[in-house]
Each structure stands twice: as structure tokens, then as C-alpha cells.
Design a binder for these strands. Structure first.
Length: 290
DNA sequence: AACCCGAACAACCGCAAGGAC
DNA sequence: GGTCCTTGCGGTTGTTCGGGT
């Protein structure tokens, strides 16, 4: 099946985006929503490849993008998730609200990857300081986790599978321990399992609560207007399936930018991931947000 | 002040999956 | 069922910027 080029290269702008281009793209997407990237540049009046528009929007212009330095907690989370998932940046990014896969990938390649490379080369816990700005204590903590993972590598595969369904926990538990987990369905599920979880523990809400749920996941009113119905349909669909079963069947474990664990099937038992949660807490949302 | 170098980040590219027809 | 199109992902390259000499 021959692939057609994503766009004609002739007459198109390349390289850095100008403020005007950003404004045009943002305004267009705000007015018409995402999607149809191939035809978007023409409709918006941009001399850009659709792919380039999509990337610019996803990695830079999206309103929910968190800018600024990666915090210590986020770094720790990235390290742990990388140990678990390998270079599946989109999945890792899905666990870090407001961070993009590209950002995390860059951060890894420029900072953490080198650090871990040096660590493994030295083969010791000797201090390595490629990034002196990071706190030593935090760094040691990260290193110890990295070395733990080296003993127990669990890199699943390097190619991500596309998300085809979005799974959002139907009810945001009031218990503060679960509040942080609300944005981390994997943790929610694991905790649920640890507690002998069932749909009774996390009763699923009806579609009427969708707006609040979406807001809890960082959607603004525009998002809800644009996609609320779609998400609510998903909610209603999933409401007919017990929560844990739905997660396994749908294979999704993140909100919005999730993955498909279905392929892991025999090789990946979600319970086996519990070791990640055994010794230490995942960073809470309050800690992650800068 | 000029130059060099490395880090950080933005953007591009090729490939593959999934859906529509 | 096959083909084509769209979208998303991960790897790589290019550019910018700041610090050191």
C-alpha cells in the first residue's frame, strides 16, 4: 500500500513558527476544533503541512500545556515510568498532566538518559552530576530507583499502540487518597484491586456528571462543549461494564492519552505492576503541579 | 568582544495502526 | 478483503541560547 506524502513540500513554510502563524492556528482550532489536520492548513490559510500544524498544536499551543521546568517529582515519575514502559513517551506523558511526549522525550534525551547511561557505565552509586541544579537528595532517590529497576527490568515493548477508547473513572472518590489517584486510573485500579476492589467501591456515575468529571481532568468549558457528548457516550457505554473489567477490556489506563494494554495480554498482568506502588507513593497531583 | 561548545528545545521525518470507502 | 487516507508515535535533526575561555 503506497503511502502518499503528507503534503506537498513546495510553497510551504518550514522551521520555526511565527507568532502570527500560532495565532492563526490557535484561533482556527478554537473555532473549529481539532482534527482534519491534512486539510486544516488550507482552511485556516496557513502555509504549513498539516502534520506540522498538529505537532505545533499538540506540543506548544494547546491551552492545557504546562510550561516550565520539570519538577523533582515529575522527574522521578518519568524515571519510574521509563523503567516500566521504555521509550513510550506518549504513555509516559499521559501520566504527567500538561506535559507532552516531545517534552518528556527531550528531557530524557538531554538529562535523564545521559544520567542513567553514566550510572550504568560507572556501575556504582557514585555521584554523577550532569545536572547540578537538581537536588542531590532527589537525585540519589532517583538513582536508587533506577538501579532497582535495573535488577528487575520490565521494558514491555518499544512501539506504542494507539488509543481507541478513553477510559475515565466514573466517580471521583472523596477520600483524599483517591483524589490524587483520580487522574491515575492505573493506580486507582491497583488500589481497588488491593482493597478487593469492585464496582461497589467505585460506583459509576451517570452521564449527567460528565461535566464535573471532565473538569476534574483539566478540561475547560470549551473542551467540554466540544467533546463532552463524545466522552459522555463513552461513559454510558462503559457504565454497562464493571469498572475493572472495562479497564481490562478496553485496555486503557490513562485519561485522554492512554494506551492499549490489550496486546500485552499474557505477558502483562496489571497486578504485576503493583510493585511500583508497594514501597512508595506516586506523587500526588498537588506535588506534580508546579 | 569574539568564538566555541554543549544543553535544551522545537520541528521534521518515516513508519505503522486504524478507519472509511 | 483490499486500498487509501488520516492520525499518532518515536527517532532524529536543526536551531537557539547561555556559559566558558
Amino acid at each position: 500500500m503506497g503511502r502518499s506524502p503528507c503534503c506537498s513540500k513546495e510553497g510551504l513554510n518550514r522551521g520555526a513558527w511565527t507568532a502570527l502563524e500560532d495565532k492563526i492556528l490557535s484561533s482556527y482550532i478554537k473555532a473549529h476544533g481539532e482534527g482534519k489536520w491534512r486539510s486544516l492548513p488550507k482552511r485556516a490559510g496557513l502555509k504549513r503541512c498539516g502534520k506540522s500544524c498538529r505537532l505545533r498544536w499538540l506540543n506548544y499551543l494547546r491551552p492545557d500545556i504546562k510550561r516550565g521546568n520539570i519538577s523533582g517529582d515529575e522527574e522521578e515519575l518519568i524515571v519510574r515510568l521509563h523503567n516500566l514502559l521504555g521509550n513510550r513517551w506518549s504513555l509516559i506523558a499521559g501520566r504527567l498532566p500538561g506535559r507532552t511526549d516531545n517534552e518528556i522525550k527531550n528531557y530524557w534525551n538531554t538529562t535523564l538518559g545521559k544520567k542513567s547511561k553514566v550510572d550504568s557505565f560507572s556501575g556504582s552509586s557514585k555521584e554523577t552530576s550532569l545536572n547540578p541544579s537538581k537536588s542531590i537528595a532527589k537525585k540519589k532517590d532517583v538513582e536508587s530507583k533506577t538501579s532497582t529497576a535495573a535488577v528487575q527490568p520490565l521494558v514491555i515493548r518499544t512501539k506504542a499502540t494507539r488509543l481507541t477508547k478513553i477510559l475515565v473513572p466514573q466517580n471521583i472518590p472523596s477520600d483524599e487518597n483517591y483524589t490524587a489517584a483520580a487522574a491515575n486510573p492505573l493506580e486507582l485500579q491497583t488500589q481497588s484491586a488491593e482493597k478487593g476492589g469492585s464496582t461497589e467501591e467505585f460506583p459509576r456515575t451517570n452521564a449527567g456528571d460528565c461535566s464535573n468529571i471532565l473538569k476534574n481532568f483539566g478540561c475547560d468549558d470549551d473542551d467540554i462543549d466540544a467533546k463532552g457528548d463524545q466522552y459522555c457516550n463513552e461513559f454510558q457505554l462503559l457504565n454497562s461494564i464493571p469498572l475493572d473489567e472495562a479497564m481490562i477490556n478496553d485496555g486503557c489506563w490513562t485519561g485522554g492519552n492512554g494506551c492499549d494494554l490489550e496486546d500485552y495480554g499474557a505477558s502483562l498482568d496489571l497486578d504485576s505492576l503493583a510493585f511500583l506502588l508497594d514501597s512508595e507513593e506516586w506523587p500526588s497531583q498537588e506535588n506534580v503541579v508546579v
